[in-house]
Design a protein around this nucleic acid. Structure first.
Length: 778
RNA sequence: GGGCCUGUAGUCUAGUGGCAAAAUGACUCGUUUACACCGAGUAGUCAGGAGUUCGAUUCUCUUCAGGCCCACCA
């Protein structure tokens, strides 16, 4: 057969599904609802390969559930309320967000998104992701802003939200507080310098990698068990270069082995310092401004790294450095920009969560994790949490925090639910107590504050018909600590409920075992792959590895996928070439009955695999059956009867072929939806009558009489065929060469009822009983 | 330092307390009434060690290697 025009086949059915609204959610059908909390991708130009794989994997489940008779709620959203979108819009529209009002910029975003989102979503449609694209949200649209702000108000009223100036993880590059979840480790080289402090006129060496913090030094720790420094406790140390005196305090946390065993505590070098200062009730010396420069005399306006250089030089000139060595150590950086984070006291908003850690673990336990071990990652993350959730970001673009404060009486005023969504910068308010003009809150929400509400946002688009918990949340493992965690937290705090019953965690796509990244230049573009091999082949590739495991991108998997598509098309051609449709089950020939009995077992296995969300086993089983049982053997077995059988032999074959193919097609429909649809529409629809194979009923077992020994008989049948093929191959004879076949008495008995099919498939002119299995050529 | 995952054929992946599997590559042969994007056949594998067991690739412990998350950051 000529090369299949996969592209036009896939295009045809993608358009058909959209036009006929095949995947439209309709709560009026009365069917049981299966709800999916679809991940909203960030609009960033085009879908990447990781998307292609993970959305394929969740779509297998969606399509399966639909065929199982569920009304599938499968919305589509985009996550547009963050830095990537801000940057994208700035680039596309050649604007600077900060030179516009927030309201105007959000308007421009919405307008631009409206222009570019359809092309972006087209990739998902081309891939065959069977969402109801009519149920669409963006996390910056009016609707999402309203829900996000409403939730904030609820939490505020419940006393869950507080505003505090607190030394917080702060990114000097992005000039905003960030959450613990936004940190990454990075190994950096650093200069470890031992500096001369003075105590009672004597030198005291203290090692540090952050000499620029000298001016912020508020005390010095030594370990009380450290004999070297016992006599210093309670005395004062003079800070080099800056000259102020700080107390020497005994603290168990000082590591005797590290550096000189003495450490300086500064406001603030890291979380340790924050705790140390709080614990000892010390007065902090803040030397950084929010823009990441120093504000201490002599170094005003200098960036941290420049100040470090300058101070080191001055220390050296004055002979205050005792020792220096190069070390490598891990530092925390902001995941968005890679900048080393600092700790700065900033006014910000928090959701109190630390008091609910064990409850949140309990909530997580109520959810079924696929794979199960992913729960551990969730649990570990919560156990290690040391900060409340900081939800405010000092950025221009985002969902505004709906709050004002009174400069005079320091009262915080929260928006009224009726006025949502609201931008405080656009809404003037007076203090209800002192009547003075209120100050608008300038900060916006952390994007997770809004995206953790996707179940509520999507549900409200369906008229609130979808209740929490949803049935399924699909997502990747890198955002367990953010998206999954925050969504569980929100549902717990608002609804006292889990957000979904199941969470389905996909792995990453790697190339040669390495993460794909733009900087490495090892990106595979799914658009090109789909173009070359077809979407069915790409989905087929996405189905070939276990859930939760990283999957190495292999072009050969796609070639195999494409081969499957061609093969099933060709097999269908054969099935229908001579077929006369059998409405009712005719009297079956024994091999047809055995085949259908095997098919039933397959249906059972595949269904149970799908029920466990084990799509890869479902696909593997079906594919194996199709290839090894259906095409390699069964088609060969019935060929003789299809061409030359009598009416009743033909009828039996036609019935089994028709149902065999239809069943395989249905089992594969979640994986390869396009070719399945093509074959269904071409051959089956006139008999089966549904508008789409994807609206068909999932195959059920039954229909044929099954006997206890079917398995054994069928296996023996296939084994004899294989043995004959082996003998022919060893003898370098063609497969269609004529033979005389000798079977043992036992084999003869087992093959009794399929003997004429056996003769056909082996091209055996005669079959005799003998002492041993034998193949002789004519 | 803590937690989790992984290690199966040249490659990439399934899988199991009882003969170790598919795809791909390699080699040999064949066929044109579904299919050369084909068919048939051959060779090739459980990281190392110890334990539990009649039996371990599978369970337990351990070593080694790789990955992820967290902690450390003076």
């Amino acid at each position: 057969m000529a090369d299949l025009d996969l592209k036009s086949i896939e295009k045809k059915w993608a358009e058909y599904w959209e036009k006929e609204k095949i995947f439209k959610f309709n709560p009026k059908t009365g069917k049981k609802i299966y709800s999916i909390d679809t991940p909203p991708p960030t609009v960033s130009g085009e879908m990447h390969i990781g998307h292609a794989y993970s959305y394929s994997q969740e779509d297998f489940i969606a399509r399966y559930k639909r065929m199982r008779g569920f009304e599938v709620f499968y919305p589509f959203g985009t996550d547009d309320n963050g830095l990537p979108t801000e940057r994208l819009i700035e680039k596309l529209k050649n604007v600077k967000s900060k030179s516009m009002t927030r309201a105007d910029f959000i308007d421009l975003c919405l307008k631009t998104l409206k222009e570019i989102t359809p092309a972006f979503i087209q990739d998902w449609k081309n891939l065959g992701v069977s969402c109801d694209y009519g149920i669409y949200y963006s996390t910056i649209d009016k609707h999402a802003r309203k829900i996000s702000q409403k939730n904030f108000i609820e939490l505020f009223k419940a006393g869950r939200i507080y505003k505090e100036s607190f030394p917080t993880i702060y990114c000097p590059e992005c000039q905003t507080p960030v959450a613990q979840a936004e940190l990454e480790d990075k190994n950096l080289g650093s200069l470890f310098s031992t500096l001369k402090f003075k105590v009672d006129g004597n030198d005291l060496g203290i090692a540090t990698t952050r000499p620029e913090l000298l001016g912020a030094c508020v005390c010095v720790f030594v370990n009380p068990r450290d004999k070297r420094y016992k006599n210093l406790i309670g005395k004062k140390a003079r800070v080099p270069l800056f000259g102020h005196e700080v107390p020497i305090i005994a603290d168990e946390s000082a590591d005797i082995e590290k550096g000189t065993g003495v450490l300086m505590v500064c406001s603030y070098g890291d979380k340790y310092d924050v705790d140390a200062i709080k614990r000892n009730k010390l007065q902090p010396r803040i030397i950084f401004s929010h823009n990441g420069t120093l504000n201490i005399k002599g170094y005003e306006g200098m960036k941290i790294k420049d100040a470090r250089k300058k101070i080191l030089k001055e220390l050296e000139e004055k002979g205050l450095i005792i020792e220096q060595k190069q070390i490598e150590h891990a530092v925390n950086v902001h995941d968005k920009c890679g900048t080393e984070i600092e700790f700065l006291p900033v006014e910000q908003w928090f959701i109190k969560i630390l008091d609910k850690k064990s409850e949140l673990i309990k909530q997580g336990k109520k959810i079924k994790w696929h794979p199960e071990f992913m729960f551990k990652r969730y649990e570990n993350w919560i156990k290690g949490l040391e900060w409340d959730w900081s939800i405010s970001r000092d950025r221009h673009f985002g969902v505004p925090i709906p709050a004002w404060s009174c400069a005079k009486c320091r009262k915080i005023i929260i928006a009224d639910e009726k006025e949502l969504p609201v931008d405080p910068l656009q809404t003037k308010k007076k203090c209800p107590d002192c009547k003075s003009e209120l100050e608008a809150e300038k900060q916006v929400f952390d994007t997770w504050m809004t995206s953790s509400l996707t179940p509520q946002i999507a549900s409200s688009l369906a008229g609130g018909k979808i209740k929490i918990p949803y049935d399924l949340r699909p997502q990747a493992h890198d955002i367990i600590r953010t998206w999954a965690f925050y969504t569980i937290t929100k549902s717990y705090l608002h609804e006292n409920e889990i957000p979904w019953k199941n969470i389905f965690i996909s792995g990453f796509v790697t190339l040669g075992g390495e993460k794909m990244s733009k900087s490495k230049g090892n990106i595979i573009r799914p658009q090109i792959v789909m173009d070359k091999y077809g979407s069915d082949a790409l989905r087929y590739g996405a189905a070939s590895s276990k859930l939760g495991e990283d999957l190495d991108y292999q072009e050969k998997d796609l070639i195999t996928g494409k081969k499957f598509v061609t093969k099933i098309m060709n097999a269908s051609r054969f099935v229908f070439m001579n077929l006369a449709y059998q409405d009712k089950m005719p009297k079956l020939c024994e091999s047809d009955r055995l085949f259908l009995s095997e098919l039933n077992k397959l249906v059972k296995r595949v269904t149970s695999a799908f029920e466990e969300y084990n799509y890869s086993r479902a696909k593997l089983e079906t594919e194996k059956f199709f290839w090894e049982v259906f095409t390699d053997n069964y088609l060969e077995i019935v060929k003789g009867r299809v061409y030359n059988g009598n009416a009743s032999e033909k009828a039996s074959a036609f019935y089994a072929l028709y149902h065999g193919l239809l069943t395989i097609l249905k089992l594969m429909a979640p994986f390869t939806p396009f070719i399945s649809e093509e074959i269904y529409q071409t051959y089956f629809r006139k008999h089966e009558g549904r508008k789409s194979i994807h609206l068909e009923d999932w195959p059920v077992e039954g229909g044929v009489r099954e006997l206890r020994h079917d398995d054994k008989t069928w296996a023996a049948f296939l084994e004899i065929i294989a043995k004959v093929r082996q003998r022919k191959s060893e003898a370098k004879m063609a497969m269609n060469s004529q033979i005389a076949l000798t079977l043992t008495k036992e084999q003869m008995k087992e093959m009794e009822e399929v003997i004429s099919d056996l003769r056909n498939v082996c091209c055996a002119r005669e079959v005799n009983e003998g002492r041993e299995f034998k193949v002789e050529f004519f």
